[in-house]
């Protein structure tokens, strides 16, 4: 498979997953914040900022918005194209990548992604957002899940499929770690909190909801929410499809399928790093995580994921296929293609 194509498939999947996760985080937190309607502005500002940090670039945010309010954060994370991680920007980039590899993805996948793209840029998307943000987020989530299902149901299990999967799971692992970190600052630096306020408990439920994990959590731990269990479920659970461990194990599998050497410990740097991270998540208890400090541990995971992404790039892509300089675009347009239809 062409390196450029692998690169585009990987990023297409990442951006779709990113849009979905941003929608999840915002959706749950907007609803949660309705419960804090009586709080003052400063308090709300303090509660929104970590969410911006979890999903986007704090500096970019500050350049555009003086205060973190529900409205400014939502604008920044949903619509603002200057924020490369906003939902609209992510969908546009996913679609741009898909356009470059249109011949490699199935018609069904292309049409749904194009549909999502046309939706996020349409005036009625804004209107839906104004009328009911949950409906808007639902459209984004549904479309992303549909895309996952469509490729699962229609895509040949070839190299492209595994690059797609690698992109999806590396992004999801990263986002789950960030979602888990959102309310991490309410925790002591190391160890577990002595007791939980009702507001904190609600915040942890929102963390679970962000990951569609609330129902599964109840069946595993009951309705009593404790950060210990939330972290255990979202970090270390082997069977929950959005837990970090689950995602890293899928990523590990995808990397091995791509290289075609599943029987040896590793054949390249990406596999080595990913295998190591998977083993760590497998042979760690949640007590150890909290003793070392949850926030620091999540930071480490994000760092490892970045390194795996970088190694993957070095191993398979070799050189950058960024959208080239402006001259490249001009030259691409300049080609006459006799008699445009």
């Amino acid at each position: 498979m062409l390196s450029r194509v692998a690169h585009s498939l990987y990023w297409m999947a990442r951006y779709i997953e990113r849009a979905e996760n941003v929608a999840r985080i915002l959706d749950v937190n907007l609803q949660l914040f309705l419960e804090f309607a009586n709080r003052d502005d400063d308090d709300r500002h303090d509660r929104w900022l970590p969410i911006v940090r979890a999903t986007g670039d704090l500096e970019v945010f500050r350049a555009h918005h003086p205060r973190a309010t529900a409205a400014s954060v939502a604008e920044f994370m949903v619509f603002q194209q200057e924020n490369p991680n906003s939902i609209v920007a992510s969908v546009c980039q996913a679609r741009e990548n898909a356009r470059m590899v249109r011949d490699q993805i199935t018609m069904e996948t292309w049409e749904e992604l194009n549909h999502l793209y046309l939706f996020v840029l349409s005036p009625q998307a804004r209107q839906i957002w104004l009328d009911s943000p949950p409906d808007y987020f639902n459209q984004i989530k549904t479309s992303s899940l549909l895309l996952g299902g469509l490729s699962a149901a229609t895509h040949l299990r070839n190299e492209g499929w595994w690059f797609n999967l690698a992109g999806r799971f590396i992004e999801r692992a990263d986002k789950t770690s960030r979602i888990l970190d959102v309310h991490g600052q309410a925790l002591p630096a190391t160890g577990l909190p002595a007791r939980l306020s009702q507001a904190d408990a609600l915040a942890w439920v929102s963390v679970l909801r962000s990951c569609s994990a609330w129902d599964a959590f109840k069946s595993l731990y009951g309705a009593d929410v404790h950060p210990r269990h939330v972290a255990e479920m979202l970090m270390l659970n082997e069977n929950f499809p959005r837990s970090i461990r689950f995602c890293v194990e899928r990523l590990d599998e995808a990397l091995r399928q791509i290289s075609g050497v599943s029987d040896r410990p590793f054949s390249n740097e990406a596999e080595k790093l990913c295998g190591r991270l998977a083993a760590e998540l497998r042979f760690t208890s949640i007590e150890e995580v909290f003793n070392a400090g949850l926030h620091g541990q999540l930071d480490q995971i994000q760092l490892h994921l970045n390194q795996i992404g970088e190694a993957l790039f070095q191993t398979y892509i070799f050189h950058a296929f960024e959208t080239g300089p402006e001259t490249r675009r001009v030259q691409q347009e300049e080609q006459q293609q006799q008699q445009l239809p």
Partner: peptide, 15 residues
């Protein structure tokens, strides 16, 4: 030439 070419759709389609 690439995605910015007017006929890119056709190129991808034929390939």
């Amino acid at each position: 030439p690439g995605v910015y070419n007017s006929a890119y759709f056709e190129h991808a389609y034929l390939a």
